[in-house]
Design a protein around this nucleic acid. Structure first.
Lengths: 197, 197
DNA sequence: GTCGAAACTTACTTATAAGTAAGTAACATT
DNA sequence: AATGTTACTTACTTATAAGTAAGTTTCGAC
C-alpha cells in the first residue's frame, strides 16, 4: 500500500509537470515511465487511459488548492494575506519550471482534451473563481483591498492577467510575470488618490 | 500560379484555424488535407515539414498585422481609434470560432514546438508589444488614453489580460472576454477622478 | 509538337502513441 | 501451505503522425 501510493503519486507528480510544461498532447506515457524506471503498462495499471490520468491530475490539484485555502482560513485569514499566499505560490510555481497555469493548460487544449477532463477543469475554474471573488469581497469590506466596480469583474481581470502573464513569461522571460503581479498588488493595495492631499 | 497560390493559401487558412483551435500537437496533415479534398502529400509539397508550416502561419500573421497597422497609420491614426480597431479585431476573431490568441498558442506550446517557430513567435511578440507601447505613449500624449506608470507596464498588463481572458472564455463563455475588454476600455478611456468635482 | 517545370497523386516507410492480454513476483490472510 | 490480491512486466496490437520517393497531369514557352 505504501509502495502503491508511492508509484501512483510519483506518476501524478511527473505527469502534472509534463502537462503543465508541454500540454496534453505534448507528452506520452513513455515520457512518464522512462524517468521513473517503470514500464509503460505500469502507468496504464494506475491510469487505464490518458483521460483518467488527466482527470486525476486536475482533481488532485483541486484538492490541494482546497486544502491550502481551508488551511489558511484557520489562521484568522485576512484577505490580503490569503491573496499574498496565493500570489507567492503562483509566482514560485511559475518561475521554478516555467510551467503554465493549470487553467491555462486546460483552456489552451480545451477542444482537444477528453470531455471528462473538461468537466473537471470546469469545476476547478469555478472554485478558483469563487475563491478569488470571496477574497476580493472580504478584502474590500475589511478595508485591506481597494478596487472599483464589481468583485466579479476584478476577479476576471486578475485571473486573466495571471494566466496570460504566466504564459507570456515563458517566451518573454520571467520579469513579465513579476511586473504583472507587482502591478496587480499596486492596484489592489494602494488606496486611490481621493484619500490623499 | 493562380492555382498554386490558391491551394497554398487555403492550406494556410485551414492550418491557422486548426493551430489556433487545437494547438500545434492537436492537428495533423490529414486534418488539413481531407476537408480541402487534396492528398496529404500535397500539403508536404507546399510545406515539407510541420515546422515549415508552423513558421509560415506565424509569418503570415505577422505580415497581416503589420499591413493592418500600417494601413491604419495612413488615416491620421488616433491612438484611440488604432486601439479600438485592434480590440474589435481581437474580439471578433475570438468570438467567431473560440480560437486562442496566436501568442497564446505559441506560449502554451512553447517548449514543444520547433525552434524555428519559437524564433518566429518571438518576432511576433516583439512587434505586437512595440505596437502596443507606441499606441499607449502616443495616446497619453494626445490625451486620449489615461493610465498610471510606465507604458511598458501597461502594455504587459493589456497583453496578459487579452490573452488570458481569450483563453478563459473558451471554458467560461465569451462574456468573460467581453467583460475584460470592457474593463480595459474603461480603465484607459475614463479620466481619473482628480479631474471630476 | 515537345520540353520542362509546377502542382500535384500514389504508394510507401518509420516511428511513436495508446491501449490490452496474459503472465509473474511479493506479500498478506486464513 | 494454499489462496488471492496488489502491483507490476512482457509482449503484443492498432492507429495515426510525419515524411519520402517516384510517377502523373497540366500548361505555357519555345
Amino acid at each position: 500500500m505504501n509502495n502503491r501510493t508511492d508509484t501512483r503519486e510519483r506518476i501524478l507528480d511527473s505527469a502534472e509537470q509534463l502537462l503543465a510544461t508541454r500540454g496534453y498532447h505534448g507528452f506520452s506515457y513513455q515520457d512518464i515511465s522512462r524517468p521513473l524506471g517503470i514500464k509503460n503498462a505500469a502507468v496504464h495499471y494506475h491510469f487505464p487511459t490518458k483521460a483518467d490520468l488527466g482527470v486525476a491530475i486536475v482533481r488532485r490539484y483541486r484538492d490541494m488548492l482546497k486544502a491550502a485555502s481551508d488551511g489558511f482560513m484557520k489562521f484568522g485569514g485576512s484577505a490580503r494575506l490569503h491573496l499574498e499566499a496565493y500570489l507567492d505560490f503562483f509566482m514560485k510555481e511559475a518561475c521554478e519550471n516555467q510551467t503554465m497555469c493549470p487553467m491555462g493548460v486546460l483552456t489552451a487544449d480545451y477542444f482537444s482534451i477528453p470531455e471528462s477532463m473538461r468537466e473537471e477543469g470546469s469545476k476547478l475554474e469555478q472554485e478558483v473563481f469563487a475563491m478569488l471573488i470571496r477574497v476580493l469581497e472580504v478584502g474590500r469590506e475589511q478595508g485591506e483591498l481597494h478596487f472599483e466596480g464589481e468583485p466579479r469583474t476584478k476577479a476576471v481581470m486578475m485571473m486573466s492577467v495571471l494566466q496570460g502573464a504566466r504564459q507570456l513569461a515563458r517566451m518573454m522571460g520571467s520579469d513579465v510575470l513579476a511586473t504583472a503581479i507587482e502591478e496587480l498588488r499596486r492596484e489592489l493595495y494602494v488606496e486611490p488618490s481621493t484619500a490623499a492631499a
